[in-house]
Amino acid sequence: MKITIACVGKIKEKYLTAGIAEYAKRLGRYCTLKIAEVADEKTPDGASEALEKAIKVKEGERLLKVIPDNAYVVALAIDGDMLDSVQLSEKIADLTVCGVSHIVFVIGGSLGLADEVLSRADAKLSFSKMTFPHQLMRMILLEQIYRSFRIQNHEPYHK
């Protein structure tokens, strides 16, 4: 299984970089992981709705360029399906059984994802109705993917 995290922006905080590196290392036992970062756009305070949409479109174009045509795409979106860890594990396992060999999880920038990216998605996933910083979301997502593989393999993992 190949998993790509397509995301907007670079991680600036050392604690997040360390956490992401740790989960990436752990995932090496289960899958081939790639993190594809695309540049983010600066959003001025008080940006108009039109400017915010234009920013999302630009970031979305960059994201779409790093998503292979044959990949199964899961967009992280607040209005997506909320799954527990076991359900996410089952979803990944089901995709594998159905012949999917590459899953791309997409994390937008601070304004979210462009409509074009959401249209490309095969599924939308929500971790909560709450808003999380997109940089923190990367680490949370990797932890849940790791947990999914542990569940699939009937391996212990803290609850």
Rank of each mutant, 00 (worst) to 15 (best):
S89I: 12
I5E: 06
M139L: 15
I145S: 00
E22F: 04
G112R: 00
G109W: 02
K91E: 15
A24G: 15
P68M: 03
C98H: 13
A47Y: 01
V86A: 14
S48Q: 14
A24E: 15
E155T: 04
V86Y: 14
D94H: 12
I5P: 05
L118A: 05
P68C: 02
T96M: 06
G46R: 00
E49R: 06
I78D: 00
G9K: 05
E49K: 07
E59A: 07
A71W: 01
A93G: 14
G112P: 03
L27C: 09
E61W: 11
I3N: 05
I55R: 04
K25I: 07
Y157W: 12
Q152H: 06
C98M: 14
L16P: 03
K10Y: 03
S48R: 10
V106G: 11
A50Q: 11
Y23P: 10
I92K: 03
F149Y: 13
K10R: 06
L111R: 10
E143D: 12
V100D: 00
Y157G: 10
L33I: 03
A18I: 12
K65I: 01
Q152K: 13
R62V: 07
L33E: 09
Q144E: 14
G46M: 05
N70H: 15
A114E: 07
R138F: 07
R138Q: 11
Q152D: 04
E90F: 09
E41T: 04
L111G: 12
G109L: 01
G108H: 11
Y157H: 13
K91D: 10
I151K: 04
D94I: 12
E116W: 08
L16S: 03
L113K: 12
H102S: 01
A36H: 12
E37R: 04
F127K: 06
S89P: 00
A77D: 15
K129F: 02
G28I: 01
V73T: 14
C98G: 11
I92A: 03
K14D: 13
P156W: 03
M82E: 15
K2H: 08
E49P: 00
L76Q: 05
P156V: 02
A6I: 04
R120S: 08
L125I: 10
T17M: 10
M139Q: 07
E155A: 02
G108C: 07
V38G: 01
M137E: 09
I55H: 03
K42G: 07
S110F: 04
L111V: 06
K159M: 02
D81V: 15
I92E: 02
A36R: 13
D40F: 00
E155I: 00
I35N: 09
A24Y: 06
A121V: 09
R150G: 02
V8H: 07
